[in-house]
Amino acid sequence: MPNRNSILIAFLMLTLIGIGYWAYDSNLHVGAQKKPPLVRENADYYLIDTQITQYDKAGELDYILTSNSITHYPHNDTTLLQTPHVESFSDPQKPLVADALNGKLLPGNQDIELWDDVVMTQADLNNGSKVRMDTDFITIYSEKGLAVTDRPVLITNDTGRTRAIGMEAFYKESLVKLKSRVRGFHEPKP
């Protein structure tokens, strides 16, 4: 009888050990079978000498973007631009023109980042004045009529020059907010 009890206890122990190992081993295989989804990070199209015309929700011309080349990446829906030239018509009386060496259309194709030798000019067709803004990086939010940078900026107009670190330019309203280290000079028109 004692031999029979020890065989039964040994059998139960081996069964419990087998069940424990099976549960542990199956958890290892379940984790190994889950693979991360395959993300395609290469470009899905590339165009040379391109012009993009964007209209707003009311069907009015919003902006025209020309670029030497554009490359679209579907995994994050961004489009890289080489030597972009943007003409914004959100206010037909005060058109905004922006040029840079590089740029990127952000997801949704409404907002644009420009960097490397960024030059923005805005002319007021009513009074003939012109403002030029130079920086090395800026983001243009076309629906808001806003251009934002945290980098150094130089603003030049008919009556002076102003330097600052950081800027918010509400170009539809012809309003510029400078963030810090503002320095400049102003010469009134005779």
Rank of each mutant, 00 (worst) to 15 (best):
Q110F: 06
L105F: 01
L61I: 13
L96N: 03
K57P: 08
Y63D: 05
L101G: 05
N109R: 13
S129P: 03
D111S: 02
E113K: 04
A32L: 14
Y55G: 07
K177P: 01
V153C: 00
E143W: 09
D117F: 10
D44K: 10
P107N: 02
G18L: 10
S6H: 11
G160Y: 08
N126W: 09
R40S: 14
S88L: 13
L178F: 02
R163F: 10
P2C: 10
Y46K: 12
T71L: 03
T121M: 01
L146R: 11
G18T: 11
G20M: 06
K144A: 06
G108Q: 03
A43H: 11
R40D: 15
K130T: 13
V153G: 00
N76D: 15
K94M: 13
Y21E: 09
I140T: 05
A98H: 03
V39K: 08
T83F: 11
E60M: 13
K179R: 12
G18H: 06
A123T: 15
G108R: 04
A98D: 02
V131I: 12
G59V: 11
L16D: 01
Q51G: 09
S88N: 11
E143H: 14
K130S: 11
Q54V: 15
T53A: 07
D62G: 07
E41S: 13
P74K: 07
V86F: 04
K104F: 02
V97N: 00
T135H: 00
G145K: 01
E41L: 14
F137S: 08
H85Y: 15
R183T: 15
L114G: 00
L114Q: 01
N27F: 12
T149M: 01
H72M: 08
A147L: 04
V30L: 13
E87L: 14
I17W: 04
L65F: 10
E60R: 15
T79G: 02
E168Q: 08
G184E: 08
I70W: 04
Y45M: 10
N126H: 12
D91T: 15
P188L: 14
N102Y: 13
L14N: 03
